[in-house]
Every structure is written in C-alpha cells, then in structure tokens.
Design a protein around this nucleic acid. Structure first.
Lengths: 139, 139
DNA sequence: CTACCACCTCTAGTCGCTGTAGAAGCAAGT
DNA sequence: ACTTGCTTCTACAGCGACTAGAGGTGGTAG
C-alpha cells in the first residue's frame, strides 16, 4: 500500500534498478515522484505497469509495441481490436523467425556432421562456411 | 585476376560498401592496400575471405566466432577440433533459441486466441500480458 | 563516528551494422 | 575545357534495449 523505493520495485518485478531508471528515461514509466532527498517512490500501479512491461518484453514485444498497448489501455471503452492486431502481428513475426531459425539449425547440423576430424586445411566445416553450401561434400 | 575496388567487391559478395569498410575497421578484413589516390584495392583472396564472413554471418556466427575460425585457418596443419567445437557450440545455441521461441509462439497463440473483441478494459490479451499468464482465462 | 548500503546522475559501452554529410577522384559526353 | 554523374573517401551519429562504471549523497546500524 505504501510507496516503495526503486530497489524494492526492482526486487518485486525481477528487474534491475538501472533498467527501471532506463524505462523512465525513455518514457515507458512515468517520472516517479521523489522524496525530499530525491529518491524515486513507486506505488501499486507502478508495480503493475512495470510487470506488464516485463511480461511484454519477455513475450518479445518491442518497447514501441508496449507503448502502443499501454496507450490503448488508457481508453478503456474502446474495443480491443487494435491491441489484438498488435499481438497478431507479433505472433506472425515470431513464427517467421522460428521458421528461419529452423532452416539455420538444419544447415548447421549438416555442417557439423560433415566434420571428419581433419587438418584445418581440409576441414569440411571451414569449406562449407566458405562456399555457402553446408552440405556434406560428395566424398 | 587484377585487383578490384570496393564497389566491385561489394557486388560480388552481395555486401554493402559501408559494411566492407566496417569489417576493415574492426579488423575482420585486413587493411586493403590503396591506389595512389587512396582507394582500397582487393584481390581474389579478399573476395574469398569476405565470402566466408558473409556466409558465416548468415549462419549466425558472431564476428568473434568468425575471427576465431579465421585465426584457426591460419594454422592449416592443426586438426580442426577447435573449429568444429565452435560450430557445435553455435548449433547448440541455435537449438536453445529455437526451443525458447517455440514456447513463445505457443504463449502468443494462446494469448491471441483468447481475444473476444471486448472493450480494452476487459481485453484478455491485455490482462494476459499484465499477469504473465497468457492462458485463456477460465470464464 | 564510522562503516555500509541504497540511492543519485551522467557517461559510455555492447552488437552488427546503416546512414549521413561533405569532399574528392575519375571517366565519358558536349 | 567543362560539366555531369558516378564512385570513393573520412568521420561521425544512430538503431534497440539495455548494462556497467565512476563518483557522489543520504540514511541508518553498530
């Protein structure tokens, strides 16, 4: 209930103190009110907001997307189409990266399997990276 | 056979001119010899080296890893254990990221499906991000 | 009184580029 | 000879999302 200082907020949200200050500096968190000696103080709504940010980041939303989402949340009567559009777009991006990464893994697997413990000069891994064709070479 | 200038090298390796200069500045490419008027000149071995770098980057190797790999290549008689270790470690990293990303996708999918075109104030997506539990809520 | 911690500000570094500004080189066309 | 237009040069700022460090102040416990 009572306001907490930055270290407490950090502990409660598994965030580094410097990160919280960083979020304030980029306007993702409001400028926290200060004590007489200049220390930032936070209340329950700040904890909630930071938790939203941390979870959003964990889910891969960019700071800009989070800014948009939190901006939308300020009009509670609007429908959430815009918000779900952001989530859907993000999901699509994640799926695309996932597909890319799967291709990469396959290439790297072939590359790794091609190693025959040779001299560097004959190393198939090195040749595969150089040629851009990470397939096991025809004998 | 004859040396080429930076633009030509860029075209032959699908690399931007600025990127080539950047690689030189971080010591990934050697300092290219210059013409009388100060322009960089490259030969066949530079093309090969840059191709290695580009393919390595495409495969997700970090600049440091490429530096190591190219350093190892300078001792052609050593065995390629160190090189294949780098590749194996990288493959492991890629596999780990792939797994993480798959979890993320599943969470985002649940989150997206939970949308019922509500008012922002009732939006399940927003609540899911906030709570860190992107499961469709029990009504 | 002093040690120690939490807090403050400000700056710079990370990674792998990309983009810009402003100057100079160079070949071809008029 | 001059102009046009491309390429190249250097040097530096910016991206995203932090992280780390220096150097200082505030508040409290022993």
């Amino acid at each position: 209930m009572k306001p907490v200082m930055i270290g407490q907020l950090a502990r409660e949200t598994s965030t580094k103190v410097t990160t919280i200050r960083f979020y304030e500096s980029i306007g993702l968190l409001r400028s926290a009110p200060r004590t007489a000696s200049g220390r930032r103080t936070y209340d329950a709504s700040d904890i909630e907001r930071l938790q939203f940010i941390r979870n959003g980041r964990r889910l891969g939303f960019s700071v800009d997307e989070l800014r948009s989402l939190m901006g939308l949340a300020e009009n509670p009567d609007q429908d959430c189409g815009a918000a779900s559009a952001i989530a859907a777009r993000h999901l699509k991006n994640v799926e695309a990266r996932l597909a890319q990464l799967a291709v990469l893994r396959d290439e790297l697997e072939m590359l790794s399997q091609s190693c025959t413990k040779a001299r560097m000069a004959d190393c198939r891994i090195m040749r595969a990276i150089g040629s851009g064709h990470p397939r096991p070479e025809p004998q």
